[in-house]
């Protein structure tokens, strides 16, 4: 089992944990926490895609990473894929934004309803 698979497994485990938290906890804050865990798990899953044991980060700080010094072409087998890293960064940013918005909601909901119990939020149904 290589590191990539391990991270992948851990990522899915986090997603499941987060889902369980979001499903089972009645407190809104804990539900958001659950979502955050899911999100983290997802990030880990994405990161795991780029992970290849024995390769370094795709930052060309060492000429050894170049396959051809004149054209500055990168030795694709020496570095990990940079795209998942970019994805993770973007996803983290979006995740933070969404989490912040959720928390804003919770604050306003608490102001209005005075409760953090999700079961109290059932005025709209059927």
């Amino acid at each position: 089992m290589n590191a990539g698979t391990l991270y992948l497994g851990a990522g899915f485990a986090l997603v499941l944990t987060g889902l369980a938290c979001a499903l089972l906890r009645r407190n809104l804050l804990r539900m958001v926490l659950g979502f955050s865990i899911v999100d983290t798990g997802v990030h880990l899953i994405i990161a795991s895609i780029g992970t290849l044991t024995g390769r370094t980060a795709p930052i060309i700080d060492d000429p050894a990473l170049l396959s051809d010094a004149t054209t500055l072409a990168v030795d694709a087998t020496a570095v990990v894929d940079p795209i998942p890293q970019a994805l993770v960064l973007t996803a983290i940013v979006i995740g933070v934004g969404v989490t912040a918005l959720m928390l804003t909601y919770i604050v306003r909901l608490h102001d209005r309803a005075g409760t953090l119990d999700v079961r109290e939020l059932r005025d709209l149904k059927w």
């Binding site: 979001a22 979502f35 998942p84 979006i94 909601y105 209005r112 005025d123």
Partner: peptide, 30 residues
């Protein structure tokens, strides 16, 4: 306050849906 309640529920499920989509995209890339 109805809007807040509705918005939160929508957002909560939407966020999880986004997470699913993100997993899907990442794995597809893989």
């Amino acid at each position: 306050s109805r809007g807040l309640e509705a918005g939160f529920k929508y957002m909560f499920l939407g966020a999880v849906a986004s997470a699913f989509i993100l997993i899907g995209i990442a794995m597809l890339y893989r």
